[in-house]
Every structure is written in structure tokens, then in C-alpha cells.
């Protein structure tokens, strides 16, 4: 019996007066890679931001590693430390003076009250190892301002990997990576899942990749349309319900070519 890392029960989230996510329930076990698919505006990002406590929820319960997320988005710090999140658009002020090593180090730190030099050697080692994992050691002392989109993604992934975690939440993570880096990226996710038992929740638009790499799929269009293995959820009938029948006809013509 695998441990449940994340349990969501009847989650409803409003954006302004608009009900962006309606009554969604699912659970995610350790060592499982779950994809959330659905058309634009389906509430995928809203859903994971509510799970993380970034957005407030209207109703429902979110439980992570046995601890429930409070209404105001508070989770005990030791649980927070087990979660990593890679946002879709990492927009930051490029005039900010910060190097890659400094950013990755922020992923290692416990964000309570602590002296800034705590950790020293172990911290530096963890930063280096995380950068090795994403093949970015050469960027270590570069300022963030000079990174390309793909490099930024890899560095952010190192920020997530710099400490062992139990739950990794990715919002369209590989967007911006080229093909070689994208396949490296999926291999890395696979290794984290298999070898360290990470649970992964990712939003994806790449249905082929989802079919190949994910264990479970949630199909979302404000409501949860269906969930299960990729073959079930990504069947033409289910896709037609989510994206409309035009989309499915288009995709089928493409995959036959």
C-alpha cells in the first residue's frame, strides 16, 4: 500500500466571481506521476495554486502528507519543506542582483528564522549537486539576468531538486526547453519517481508525452471530467468531451501522418 501524499476533496476555487474550479476530488500516492490535462482556461493552474495555498479556496479540503492545508493557506513548515513548485511563468525583475547559486540555495534553506551562514558546506554541496543533475554547473556563478528561457527553467528545476522532497508540482514545466533538454527532463522526473519515490503532479499540454510517461491523468475543464490511466483518459471519446470533437479529429489526422 503506497502512502497518499496529496488528497484533494471537493475543492472549489473562485477567481473573482467566476467559479474556476468546481468540486474536484483526487488523490496522489508516492512514486506516482500524475498529469492534469485540459483546454486553456480549464482551471489547471488555479487548481494547483489552490493546492499550494497560493490562491484561497471557496470550499473543500486539501491534505498534504497527512496535514490539512488551512483556509489561509498555512501548512506546518516540515511539510512545506517536502513540497517543490515550479511555476508556469517565472517572471522576475531582471535588474535584481542574484546569481544562479544564490537562487538554487534558496530552495535548500528552511525559511524560518536562522542565521544566514547556517548550513555553509552542506548547502554549497547541495547546490552543486542539484546543478549537476540539471546539467547546469557552468551557470553556477552567472547572474540570473543573463539566462535564456531554457536555462532559467533548468535552474528553477535545480531549485526544486536541491533538497529531497516528497511532492513536486510542475506547471507546464518543459515549456521553453528544446527537444534534447525536454527528454533529459522527463528522464530526470522518471528517476526521481522511481528511485526516490517522489509524487509528481504536473500540468501538461503534450498529450503524447503524458501517454508515455505518466501513471495517472486528470482531465479537467473546470469540473473533473475523468481520471485514471492515460489510455482511458486520453481516449478519443474522453478527449472530445474535454477539448471538443474538432480537436480530436485534428489530432487523429496528425498522428496518422
Amino acid at each position: 500500500m503506497r502512502e497518499t501524499v496529496l488528497a484533494v476533496e471537493g475543492l472549489t476555487v473562485y477567481r473573482g466571481t467566476y467559479e474556476a474550479v468546481q468540486d474536484v476530488s483526487f488523490s496522489l500516492e508516492q512514486g506516482t506521476d500524475m498529469a492534469i490535462v485540459g483546454p486553456n482556461g480549464a482551471g489547471k493552474s488555479t487548481l494547483i495554486q489552490a493546492v499550494l495555498g497560493i490562491l484561497p479556496r471557496q470550499s473543500g479540503e486539501v491534505t498534504i502528507l497527512g496535514q490539512s492545508l488551512s483556509r489561509s493557506g498555512v501548512l506546518p513548515m516540515p511539510v512545506r519543506q517536502q513540497i517543490a513548485y515550479l511555476p508556469q511563468n517565472f517572471l522576475f525583475d531582471r535588474r535584481l542582483p542574484m546569481t544562479v547559486a544564490e537562487l538554487v540555495g534558496l530552495g535548500w534553506d528552511q525559511l524560518g528564522l536562522s542565521l544566514p551562514w547556517v548550513g555553509g558546506r552542506a548547502r554549497r554541496l547541495a547546490i552543486r549537486q542539484a546543478l549537476v543533475q540539471v546539467d547546469a554547473t557552468h551557470l553556477m556563478h552567472q547572474p540570473l539576468s543573463g539566462l535564456s528561457g531554457g536555462e532559467t527553467k533548468r535552474v528553477l528545476l535545480a531549485y526544486c531538486l536541491v533538497r529531497p522532497r516528497r511532492l513536486l508540482i510542475l506547471d507546464e514545466a518543459p515549456a521553453g526547453l528544446d527537444i534534447r533538454n525536454e527528454s533529459d527532463f522527463y528522464e530526470l522526473l522518471h528517476a526521481l519517481k522511481q528511485e526516490q519515490g517522489w509524487a509528481i503532479l504536473q500540468i501538461s499540454h503534450d498529450l503524447e508525452m503524458v501517454r508515455k510517461t505518466c501513471d495517472r491523468v486528470l482531465c479537467l475543464n473546470r469540473r473533473l471530467l475523468c481520471q485514471g490511466g492515460p489510455d482511458l483518459v486520453l481516449s478519443p471519446d474522453n478527449l472530445a468531451t474535454a477539448y471538443g470533437s474538432e480537436f480530436v479529429r485534428y489530432r487523429h489526422q496528425h498522428s496518422e501522418n
Partner: peptide, 22 residues
């Protein structure tokens, strides 16, 4: 001194800080 990393993350990217429970 005691909240340096929190302040750095908050200055860099607010949602990232929120996701860490700040």
C-alpha cells in the same frame, strides 16, 4: 539577518515564496 533568505525569495518572486509557506 534572521529572515534574509525569506526576504530574498520574496523580492525575487512572490508566488514562489507563498508556495514555500511564507
Amino acid at each position: 539577518g534572521l529572515t534574509l533568505r525569506t526576504q530574498m525569495l520574496l523580492t525575487l518572486h512572490e508566488p514562489l515564496a507563498k508556495a514555500r509557506g511564507v
